[in-house]
Simulated assay, not measured.
Amino acid sequence: MQLDFGLTALGEKFHMEWRYDGPNPRDVVRHWGEFVGHDEAGREDLRRLDEDVRLLLASPLSDDEIHALWRVAAMFYPAYPVNGQEPPRGRVWLAEIAAELRPFVEESADGAPVAGVIPDAERSAVIALAGRLTPRAELPLEPLPASTVIAAVERCATLVSAALAFRFLLRAYSAYNSPVPATSWAAFEELNSSFGYGEFMLATIEYLRAE
Rank of each mutant, 00 (worst) to 15 (best):
E17G: 10
A162G: 10
A152I: 03
A182R: 11
A73K: 00
P60N: 14
L49I: 03
Y20H: 13
S59V: 10
D50E: 13
G196T: 02
L46N: 04
A187C: 09
G6H: 02
G84T: 04
A73L: 02
V53S: 13
A146I: 06
G33L: 05
P60K: 10
A182K: 13
E154V: 09
M201W: 04
E34D: 14
W18Y: 11
E100Y: 01
S108N: 13
P145A: 14
G131R: 07
Y176F: 14
A210E: 15
N192K: 08
V53T: 02
E96S: 13
F14S: 15
G131M: 13
T158A: 15
P25M: 03
P103M: 08
E107S: 14
I118W: 11
Y197L: 15
F5D: 12
E34L: 09
V114S: 07
A73S: 15
A128I: 00
V153C: 05
E65A: 15
L164W: 03
T183G: 05
I205N: 01
A175M: 01
R30E: 07
A186D: 08
E17D: 10
S161E: 09
L101H: 05
Y176Q: 03
A182L: 13
A99D: 09
V153W: 01
A163R: 09
A41K: 15
